[in-house]
Design a protein around this nucleic acid. Structure first.
Lengths: 348, 348
DNA sequence: TTACCGAGTGGAACCGGTTCCACTTTTGTA
DNA sequence: TACAAAAGTGGAACCGGTTCCACTCGGTAA
């Protein structure tokens, strides 16, 4: 086990000073005679020299690294987001340190501390909603923060990248209304989250547009973790006045909800029309394939990274930026006109 | 934007030297009088001091970081692996830098260089199969390498963690044989990969055990990337002598293969019994639910990290270790006895 | 009483880069 | 030809930790 060459090794071998080598490495930092540059580059090649990141970071005060803080990578949405962020970051020569929170503010706080230790230049995060002061402190110490997917109301001066939540929920709801549904259930995230609020807003707007009154019983706020989606499905369908349409707008709960529907033997779309938020590879492999709101994950990743890197390089004007990208509605065969059920006729 | 306190700030505030503060931070490195220790700890708390990782790394020569190099995070297998590795690493105070290769040796080489720059203490990787010299160089520079899921034949002295590939394939094949299948197709990875070879070995062993001769036309080696799985399915079923059973043992190609089956309207298990490698959350949501070999991803992650950290801390004896964990076979309703088809009767 | 040992402490070098600054050599222009 | 400006170079400080070493104390054994 030998040890890697350092800048001084290169300087010695090339017969120049370390300053010259450093300038060859960072061309903007000063002039180097073409001949010497060539000479140094040759030695670098021969020795297989590569600058140590730690040394550079120590000197620069911050690292060419961004932290990615998400709930967990088992959720395909975050997995794909991470995939794109990592991929996109690479092309900018930036590394990504991934941390997961499991939606637990304490774990989130720990993650932020760790990222701070690492002097990351920026953080892309799906915040749990807590740790307001911690986020502030982070920003105060010069770490550029971008929230993706969700926002925090108390932190209005943070960049945010998300889909048009309200609009997406509205389109999904409209689709079911157009098919003739009037009792449309919504499973969404906690009301404390921005996505939960926005999506319910779009749902409400669609109902109002069709003069359908909103039945609070049909709206379920379900935490991101756990099996709340399945339970909500169970309780919604157990009602004597069960819905004929269902929108699962809590990405993390789609699996749990669909699993319960399958277990209960619910016939889709005969018994229930279903639309889920977030189009996964498997949503079209279920039977029937599920109609879905497809989040343009690549776009979310791209914009988030663009923002973080832009801030890190100081080439963005001050002031928080909010980017909302359009999500596609992908109609599949899980939606149909409601059956004229016994329940339905009772209400007539 | 203020700047974070340094060890000298702490020393000054506590009225001691930096050496003392450092010894408080790293208790094993020397004695500190209890009174002063308390005093220093108080100041640390007050100032919110946290040691900069870069400085520590520079001095130590290596980082408390491991690299995780996988194909991509869009594949649920790797996503879950990453999830567990990140989670497990956190509890050891280790950060994970994730890099993806897209199965491209060039990208892999780039990733390894980058990880080298970062002075990572270890790397957990699913190697593409190339870059043999590069892996050697990495190890030569003191980076601890553990291969997960796959091995590289030329690098026999590297730790490897995987499932019992041969045994798993054998059990899947046995299951179909027991149901009465004789024409069993196998879609697996390239023959150049260890998983491809081992799994075909198990398949062959099962057939031999049942005195069924192996028809080379039924074995398809498909690259990890692209839509080869779907194409293989198409060509297998187009044959006049089509199989009645199918094992998709190339994790990356399961989605593509299943999608094609659905598109072709193949009735499972009536027309074809199917077993897939790798149990995803969605394999039981398709209809019918798919029988699967369930890789104990948590175990893979745990052992990989255990090995890497063990090596980093020098508490493991020399000599490469190979850990093979048992995979579960999860029978679901995608397998049944073969129908007595026209094709079948011809062969009798 | 002296010599010795270990605990406790601070100074300073070091890790490997970057950058400022002083200095020498060109080059361009009057 | 003279002289200022620009190009090119190397020395040394610095980033923020760790660690080696010399040194000062007590306490204990000879």
């Amino acid at each position: 086990m030998k040890k890697a060459p350092t800048i001084r090794d290169v300087a010695a071998a090339a017969g120049v000073s370390v300053s010259v080598v450093s300038r060859v490495l960072n061309p903007e930092s000063g002039p180097v005679a073409p001949a010497k540059r060539e000479q140094v580059l040759n030695v670098i090649r021969e020795l297989g020299y590569r600058p140590r990141a730690a040394a550079r970071e120590l000197s620069a005060g911050h690292a060419l690294t961004v932290g990615l803080v998400v709930t967990d990578l088992a959720n395909p949405f975050f997995a794909q987001l991470a995939d794109r962020v990592v991929w996109e970051a690479r092309s900018h020569g930036v590394q990504v340190v991934v941390m997961t929170t499991q939606e637990d503010p304490h774990l989130e706080a720990e993650s932020l501390d760790t990222l701070l230790d690492r002097s990351v230049g920026g953080v892309i995060a799906t915040p749990t909603g807590g740790n307001v002061e911690k986020w502030d402190r982070l920003r105060d110490l010069g770490v550029n923060v971008v929230f993706v997917d969700r926002a925090i109301a108390e932190l209005s001066d943070v960049d945010v990248v998300s889909i048009e939540n309200s609009d997406s929920a509205r389109r999904a709801t409209d689709h079911l209304i157009a098919l003739g549904h009037e009792r449309i259930a919504l499973i969404t995230g906690p009301a404390s989250t921005s996505t939960g609020r926005s999506r319910i807003g779009g749902y409400r707007a669609a109902l109002e547009g069709a003069s359908i009154s909103l039945d609070p019983m049909l709206v379920r706020h379900v935490p991101f973790r756990g099996d709340g989606g399945g339970d909500a499905v169970g309780s919604l369908l157990a009602s004597p006045d069960a819905p004929t349409g269902l929108i699962v707008a809590n990405t993390a709960q789609v699996q749990s909800s669909v699993r319960r529907l399958v277990q209960m033997g619910v016939r889709i779309p005969d018994d229930l029309s279903v639309i889920v938020f977030d189009d996964n590879p498997w949503t079209e492999l279920t039977s029937p394939p599920l109609s879905a709101i497809r989040q343009p994950i690549g776009m979310l990743a791209l914009h988030s990274l663009e923002l973080v890197l832009g801030r890190m390089q100081g080439r963005l004007p001050a002031g928080a930026r909010t980017i909302e990208v359009m999500a596609d509605f992908v109609p599949r065969s899980s939606c149909a006109a409601p059956a004229r059920s016994a329940t339905k006729s009772v209400t007539r």
